[in-house]
Computed example of a mutant assay.
Amino acid sequence: MTDKLEALSQPVGWTTQEELNEANGGVGWMFLSPMKQPDEIALYSQEYVTALLNENAELKASLSEWEDCKHDGATYHDMSGRERCGRCGADL
């Protein structure tokens, strides 16, 4: 996690499920410190949520190179002696 994401990862407020249900698209209460309620819900800034969604998209894109592996790279043998692809780890 980057320093910026770490700084943004702190909740900006808290609410409860009851408040969310009562708000129903309108206005509800938001508390600036934890209420220590069993149904307490942390609220995060839109900037933090957007940053997490962008990071998730980048990670998914980088995964495609592993998912699309055609096993044409280096190989290794695992502890059981099976030959595996050095790129994606699949049995060969």
Rank of each mutant, 00 (worst) to 15 (best):
M1W: 14
D3F: 11
K4Q: 09
K4T: 09
L5R: 13
A7F: 12
A7D: 10
P11A: 08
G13L: 00
W14F: 11
W14D: 07
T16S: 10
Q17T: 14
E18I: 12
E18H: 14
E18K: 14
E18V: 14
E19F: 03
E22T: 12
E22N: 11
W29N: 04
M30S: 04
F31D: 08
S33M: 07
P34Y: 08
P34F: 10
M35H: 09
M35E: 15
K36Y: 15
Q37G: 00
Q37H: 13
D39L: 01
E40M: 01
I41W: 05
A42Q: 12
E47L: 09
E47Y: 00
V49M: 12
V49P: 02
T50H: 15
T50F: 15
A51Q: 04
L52Y: 03
L53S: 14
N54T: 12
N54E: 15
E55K: 09
N56S: 14
A57D: 15
A57L: 11
E58A: 12
L59T: 05
L59D: 11
L63A: 07
S64I: 04
E65F: 05
E65Q: 03
W66C: 11
K70Q: 02
K70R: 15
H71K: 06
A74F: 10
A74N: 13
G81Q: 04
R82E: 10
R82V: 01
E83W: 01
E83P: 02
E83L: 05
R87M: 09
C88M: 03
D91P: 01
D91A: 10
D91S: 07
D91C: 05
L92M: 06
